[in-house]
Amino acid sequence: MNIVACVKQVPDTEAQIKVKPDGSGIDEGGIKWVMNPYDEFGVEEALKMKEKFGGDVTIVCVGPARAMETIRTALAMGADKGIHISDPALENADAYTTASALAAAIKGVPYDVILCGQRAIDDDSGQVGSVLAELLGIPQVTVVTKVDVDGQKVKVVRPIEGAQLVIESALPAVITATKGLNEPRYASLPGIMKAKKKPVDVKDAAALGVSADAKAKVGKFIPPPARPPGKIICADDTPEGKAAEVAKLLREEAKVI
């Protein structure tokens, strides 16, 4: 069984995000870059499938030169080879363009399952996996917490508001992973050593025949609105007194209860 896992390099969740003064983007100084946490769930699931059914795991990533580190991390976890789509023209690519590049790269790879994170925690778009499925003309099941492959079918669990859906899909398919699917493994030291020798193909947009014309783009980045300073409730200094004061403020000042 051949599996493709798509990954993206993103700022760590603890990163402070500062908008550049001209609003053209974020200031990348001092940011620690990591594999998108949702993609880690995808890579882990890919490795589990490989352990169960055999085959190869190919990592595909769109990102600048630094993203090679994220591909090596996935290879160190146990993936077999990588494709790094690196092109300055793709740096602010929208979901459609990114998915087009992934689709073009993946067309040259045999696959039964494609795993993606349900969204990247930088732009929070949550589109690339779905668009990729459409461009490849295969079914998709998104935001899943359980995956069972059975022959030419896959059964997944997808949580929605107030319920969980059990969905069956034909393969090949794109599956997007969310938290709860698994516990991603850490790369072992021998894994890290081996990863250095695993093959990674580097391709640019022209080689893949992808146009970088965005359908949507962020015209301006804006810092979040500052919250007005709040007040510390003192009242009569007993927990009951403070609780009564908060309840009163919520009712009479904020009018939210």
Binding site: A15, I17, D124, A214, A216, G219, F221, I222, P224
Partner: peptide, 24 residues
């Protein structure tokens, strides 16, 4: 259409403009 959305889980916001129809 200009759409305003949180990015980085709300650590910043983006104003999105569109070059294709429909703007979604």
């Amino acid at each position: 259409l200009v759409a305003v959305r949180p990015m980085y889980a709300g650590k910043c916001f983006g104003e999105v403009v569109f070059n294709a129809a429909p703007a979604m």
